[in-house]
């Protein structure tokens, strides 16, 4: 399959999607609604970040599996 079917959509998804995601994280942190000095909010921050990379990993894994398995 061509790059237009594999890594280009992947990069666009996590590039543009990543801009939305990190903009959201920065806005809720700056506005004070996500207060990372609190233990429970710090944990939420970690969950949100790990969630982003979790989906990135799943997509990368599936692309590699489709190409080489």
């Amino acid at each position: 399959p061509s790059l237009l079917n594999t890594w280009i959509p992947f990069l666009y998804l996590y590039g543009v999607g990543g801009i939305f995601f990190f903009a959201g994280l920065i806005i809720v942190k700056k506005s004070g609604s996500l207060d990372t000095t609190r233990k429970s909010h710090k944990r939420w921050m970690k969950i949100m970040l790990w969630g982003f990379f979790y989906f990135m990993f799943i997509h990368a894994f599936l692309i590699i599996a489709a190409l080489y398995w």
């Binding site: 079917n5 959509p9 666009y12 998804l13 999607g17 799943i58 599936l62 489709a66 190409l67």
Partner: peptide, 28 residues
């Protein structure tokens, strides 16, 4: 077929199902 195993659609074709359209319509 190899194309059927991929998790993301082709970047911009066909008109009836493409990555970029689905990203803005569904993802956003």
């Amino acid at each position: 077929p190899a194309e059927w195993k991929l998790p993301l659609a082709h970047f911009n074709e066909p008109a009836s199902f493409n990555f970029i359209g689905i990203f803005w319509q569904d993802g956003v």
